[in-house]
Simulated scan of single mutants.
Amino acid sequence: MEIEIFTLCDHAQDFNGKLVIVGTFDSISSSVYPFTHAACSLAGRLRFSEKESGVHEFKIKLIDEEGIELYPAIEGNIDVSKSVANYSTINFAINLGNLEFKKPGKYAIELYIDNEWQKGLPINVIKQ
């Protein structure tokens, strides 16, 4: 499996197999804490080889600098079907609302496939 795209953004949508991403970012700032970020999206595109066809588990976590989960993990299954090509692609656009950050610091969104860590996406939460 290859991770072609894994990003936090203002908005994302899968439109008939085309992943639309608007306003990618990795930093959020506020002068007051706790701070609630009203809305954003997590966008991704995964490429699986023909040999990887089948059902795969996924998990997405939002953690703080100590590795503590801030919210329940997003979990599910990806059914990768065989394709006429030698690979299959899976797009995802997950809308995240009202993310609360209790203090400035380094946070991350982590992607796990089949219970194995695949990618971490840093989020710097900055005090203005």
Rank of each mutant, 00 (worst) to 15 (best):
E66I: 11
E66G: 07
E4C: 07
A85H: 03
A93I: 02
K103T: 14
K61A: 11
K61L: 09
Y33K: 03
I113C: 08
F92M: 09
I126M: 05
N95P: 13
D79P: 00
E2L: 11
D114H: 02
D10Y: 02
I68N: 10
S81G: 11
I21G: 04
Q128R: 12
I28S: 08
E4N: 09
F25N: 02
K51H: 11
F25M: 06
K127R: 07
G120M: 12
A38Q: 11
G67W: 09
I94S: 12
T7D: 09
S88Y: 01
I60V: 13
K18R: 15
Y33N: 04
S88V: 02
N91Y: 09
D79G: 03
E75G: 06
E65G: 07
E57A: 08
Q128M: 06
I60A: 00
F101P: 02
R45W: 00
F15P: 00
F92D: 01
Y71N: 13
G120S: 13
S88P: 03
G76L: 07
I63K: 15
K103N: 13
K82S: 09
K127A: 10
N98D: 15
L96K: 03
K59E: 15
A93T: 09
N16E: 12
L121H: 06
E2D: 14
N16R: 12
H11E: 10
L46W: 01
L70Q: 11
A43H: 00
S29P: 01
F25D: 05
R45I: 02
L46K: 05
L99C: 05
K82Y: 09
L62W: 13
K103I: 08
T7S: 15
F92T: 07
K82D: 06
